[in-house]
Design a protein around this nucleic acid. Structure first.
Lengths: 220, 220
DNA sequence: TGTACATCAGTGAACGCGCGTTCACTGATGTAC
DNA sequence: TGTACATCAGTGAACGCGCGTTCACTGATGTAC
């Protein structure tokens, strides 16, 4: 048999490793969706896969590394999703719906990013870098949106602390809109996903829609 | 010694019990603040208090009951805080700042209410009732705020599903404003508390302020 | 006020459990010549 | 193509740990007469 790398540049063994790794992650997501992140257990995953517990240590150094990887994947997925939408010419409304669809598809994935923080946990730099990518997409979309708005106090403040925008050439108003796009939609989405609209009988989609439209209005 | 009830109507033993219960809860909050809710352990609390593990079972039937009690206390505290502010004549801005102060005082308490939900957990009815109290305060404040706004699509939709407002006689616009008060401020607050503005150098208070002011503008 | 009894807080031993993780190993797969 | 060796996936036993929870108990506190 020929075990030279295939056209993806990976040997069979590498491909096998990658596949098992991803299978582990799939089972990890299932556990998180079923019982929450704190219930994630390497032994339980191994059992589900018909492996012994220690086998997983061939693929992840320890439990923390697995969780960090899941967080990374969640960020990556979100960043790719919004970037993909923006590159396909999505306007603000379409982008917002893309975000909502992504969140509803897997609430626990959303909460792994935007849910309760674990005291003392700090994400590695490459993950915070992905946050920056997401912000960049929001800024791109915000600049296409800005009309002849009057400047806002927040816009001016943000303009005075532009570091977070990378070197994005967004106007103060666009900075303001991008940030508020994020916070308003997160406000609605996270309450919806957490079930806080449960007893109430209205349709969360209508609320979401209203908040999306609010972003088209001039600021303060 | 006289062991008849004192003027609060409780015997010394009852007062002692109540005090130990509250001491247990205090230590529980410390643990949650330090290492997150999933790290909450009855044995660890007992150790901190210089008691044996089983002693705590005199005060709480089990771990779940303790956690539920903490959640109840968190809701109660929030409801009392906003109700107190409103009764002291707080307007929308003051109420918003009261909320922010309450949240910043103990982020983990905030997240116990509004953070990542535990799949499968359903709060008992008396707790969801407290949600209603909070909503009532928001509605009270919203009605004082409403000007000659044009009706919104969301307002009309909410008016068609008024059950969640109890029998509060708020106008459609007021319903809309109350709900958006909640979601917008939660959006900003939860991202701030979770540290998502960490790397960015702007002042979250300015963003919060801007969102509070946004509530004074006419809706869509 | 004093004594007999009931209540109840707290203890220490013990339970079974599942966890993360290590280690020395077997056996299959891949590599070099 | 065949053989010798190296790599590496996975196993099973074992570790120590802390967890929630039960149980039978002791001793202090409160109650009734």
């Amino acid at each position: 048999m020929d075990h030279t790398p295939d056209d993806t540049g990976r040997t069979p063994r590498e491909r096998y490793r990658a596949q098992v790794r991803s299978e582990i992650k799939t089972h990890a997501w299932e556990q998180i969706a079923t019982a929450g992140t704190s219930a994630l257990s390497l032994n339980a995953i191994a059992k589900q896969m018909g492996l012994s517990g220690p086998a997983l240590y061939r693929y992840f150094a320890n439990r923390d590394e697995l969780i960090t990887e899941l967080i990374r994947d969640a960020y990556r997925s979100l960043a790719d999703t919004v970037r993909g939408a923006a590159d396909s010419g999505a306007d603000l409304t379409t982008l917002a719906h893309t975000l909502r669809t992504w969140a509803l598809a897997d609430p626990q994935r959303y909460f792994l990013i935007y849910g309760t923080p674990v005291p003392g946990y700090h994400a590695p730099d490459d993950i915070t870098a992905i946050s920056g990518e997401i912000m960049a997409v929001l800024l791109d979309t915000a600049v296409t949106l800005v009309g002849p708005d009057a400047g806002s106090a927040l816009g001016a403040h943000l303009d005075g602390h532009r570091e977070w925008a990378g070197d994005h050439p967004a106007s103060p108003t666009a900075l303001h809109k991008a940030l508020v796009f994020w916070t308003r939609l997160h406000g609605v989405l996270s309450l919806e996903l957490a079930g806080h609209f449960g007893g109430m009988r209205f349709d969360p989609a209508v609320l979401f829609e209203a908040e999306v439209e609010s972003l088209r209005m001039p600021l303060a």
